[in-house]
């Protein structure tokens, strides 16, 4: 067991998979010699060489197209899109090409590839380098969507993503890169499509993802001291979605609160609310509530960005108010 930062967990995860499987290759902007703009790929070029760790030009379509073409012909590429906002310039390759081609060809081709990206806000980067876009990916049939909240999950879920035979969108929470957590020694491999119960309570179930998970846990501690005992579920994987765990935990407390960094409309929590409403309505003691970033682009200034993204305080006050009424 060692303490590792979220960013170092990314490079350890990539190294673990590149060590294991020679068909795993890495490509993206500044990922090699520079070690990544978030320093999440430090040391990989030196360790695996320029044939397997390839710096690219600023050509997001070519990066993802190269990954797709390589995946359909025997390699297992890991492509980096530096900031998740940049998916807007290469979304065709994601949404039309990678996601649809297995279906269109009746299964003649498949795409064992991982697309990693720094997602979400909290670093004062402004509207074009901060948005949480996991709900974009979730809306596309044919993509698996993963967003880990801690270093151990980064490694385990990343390994599962690389070994998965289908395309996986792996959203790394930019705001968590510097955070640390305990990570077991040795090879870690987790399972996609599994949510995790991080805290068990009796009064309310808080369902969170990625950077919102530590905030949900912190809020739950404060709420407990005020007499509201909460369960916290880390969704971890939006596709496949572990609805069994979520429905079970929501049914047990009778209340669901989602904590989402994505903007309000059609955020992943809306789908969860719909599933809960359809499948465990009779177990509910009150309406499911969504705590989200408002439906706005993210502002840059500290005070404004902090106001936009769900904070520990907002989670506490929303839940407290709802539970009291």
């Amino acid at each position: 067991m060692a303490e590792l930062s979220y960013r170092d967990a990314v490079s350890r995860a990539i190294a673990q998979e590149m060590d294991r499987d020679p068909s795993v290759v890495l490509l993206g902007e500044d990922i090699g010699a520079a070690g990544g703009v978030f320093k999440a790929t430090v040391g990989l070029l030196e360790r695996f060489g320029p044939e397997r760790v390839r710096d690219t030009p600023i050509s997001e379509q070519a990066i993802l197209g190269a990954a797709m073409g390589a995946a359909m012909t025997g390699l297992r590429p890991i492509a980096e899109i530096m900031f998740a906002d940049f998916f807007a310039v290469c979304w065709d390759i994601v949404a039309n090409q990678i996601a649809k081609s297995s279906y269109m060809t009746a299964g003649q081709v498949s795409f064992p590839l991982v697309i990693r990206s720094g997602n979400g806000g909290g670093l004062r980067f402004g509207a074009q380098h901060s948005q949480a876009v996991e709900n974009w990916a979730m809306a596309i049939p044919g993509l698996k969507v993963v967003a880990p909240s801690n270093p151990a999950d980064v490694i385990g879920l990343f390994a599962a993503a690389v070994r998965d035979p289908d395309p996986v969108m792996f959203f790394e929470a930019k705001g968590l890169y510097a955070t640390k957590g305990e990570v077991p020694d040795g090879e870690l491999v987790d399972t996609l499509g599994t949510a995790k119960v991080l805290r068990s309570g009796t009064d309310a179930t808080i369902v969170a993802l990625a950077a919102m998970v530590p905030r949900a846990l912190a809020a739950a501690e404060v709420l407990a001291a005020r007499g509201i005992d909460s369960t916290v579920v880390d969704v971890r994987s939006l596709v496949p979605l572990d609805t069994q765990t979520i429905l079970r935990e929501v049914s047990a407390t009778g209340r669901m609160f989602t904590v989402e960094e994505n903007p309000r409309l059609c955020g992943w929590g809306a789908e969860l609310v719909s599933i809960v409403a359809e499948e465990c309505f009779d177990d509910l003691d009150g309406p499911p509530l969504r705590i989200t970033t408002p439906h706005i682009p993210l502002p840059s200034a500290d005070a404004l960005e902090d106001l936009a993204i769900p904070s520990v305080e907002r989670i506490i006050s929303t839940i407290e108010r709802a539970m009291q009424s």
């Binding site: 044939e51 197209g65 073409g69 390589a70 390699l75 390759i93 090409q97």
Partner: peptide, 24 residues
């Protein structure tokens, strides 16, 4: 390896297949 209906996309995919062939 496919026929693609969004103009230009498949050039990137073809280069990926070429990269893969060269790498392998």
């Amino acid at each position: 390896m496919g026929s693609y209906a969004i103009v230009g996309a498949h050039l990137t995919i073809a280069l990926g297949a070429a990269w893969s062939a060269k790498h392998r």
